[in-house]
Simulated scan of single mutants.
Amino acid sequence: MKEKDIFKEKAENGYIVCFADNCPLKECCLRYLVGQKMPDTTSSYHCVNPRFQDVGTTNCSLFRKAEKVKYAKGMTHLFNEDMPKRVEPYVRQHLINSHCRTYYYEFRNGERLIPPTVQEEIRQYFREAGWNGDVIFDGFVEDYEW
């Protein structure tokens, strides 16, 4: 799917958009770029409040960088026979505690993409459990941090 089609789809499906034309970050902000693809047939949409205190500044708290990041997809091969037995339950329990059981299984089965921050969190749990080997996810995809 082309990027402009992805932006149009997001705009039509409730993604919060921005129309701050005076914003210094607008050329690299997902919210602004998606807003520019808003079709004129849409009667209502979710939009950033233009009067919010930091909208239109270089410190905008609603800014989303229009840059793709590398998401991990699936972790069914994360645990292997070489690992000490204590590693798997330690990592699993910490992921469930920090996210939830549903997210853990969605991450595991590849139903929910694993953002870079969570990938690093998983690596940290492995280090805490005493595993210094590679942490191998099933695969990777690139997408925007919506």
Rank of each mutant, 00 (worst) to 15 (best):
V34K: 00
W146K: 07
E3L: 11
R112M: 15
L62A: 05
R64S: 01
V17S: 01
E121N: 11
F140Y: 15
Y32H: 13
Q53Y: 12
N13M: 04
V34R: 00
H94P: 00
P116D: 03
D82P: 07
Y103D: 15
N22Y: 13
M83Y: 05
I136M: 12
D21Y: 05
M83A: 04
C47M: 07
C23K: 02
I96L: 04
A72E: 03
E3Q: 07
M83V: 07
R31P: 00
E81T: 05
S98H: 13
E121L: 12
Q36D: 08
Y125D: 08
F7A: 15
A66E: 05
F52Q: 11
G110P: 01
E128Q: 15
K4P: 02
E67H: 10
V135I: 14
R127Q: 10
C28G: 10
C29D: 09
H99C: 11
H77G: 08
N132G: 14
K10D: 02
E120W: 03
Y32R: 07
P89G: 04
M1T: 12
N22L: 12
N97Q: 13
F19M: 10
P84G: 13
G110C: 00
Y71T: 08
M1L: 11
V34A: 13
K4W: 01
V34G: 11
L78W: 00
P39I: 05
K68C: 01
G35Q: 06
E106P: 03
I96G: 00
Y90I: 05
E88P: 03
A129D: 09
W146R: 12
R101P: 02
L30R: 03
I96M: 06
E12I: 08
L95R: 00
F52W: 13
C100V: 01
I96Y: 01
L25D: 14
W131A: 04
C28L: 10
C60H: 04
M83W: 05
R108F: 14
K8Q: 11
N109F: 05
F107H: 09
G35N: 01
A66R: 04
R64G: 02
C28M: 10
D21R: 10
M83H: 06
H46V: 01
N13G: 03
A20P: 02
Q53E: 11
T41E: 10
R31G: 04
G130V: 09
P116H: 09
E9H: 13
K68T: 04
R101T: 13
F140L: 09
E81P: 03
S98A: 15
N49W: 02
V141Y: 05
R92Y: 07
K73M: 12
P115Q: 08
T76S: 10
F107S: 02
A11R: 00
T58Q: 14
T58I: 14
R127P: 00
A20H: 08
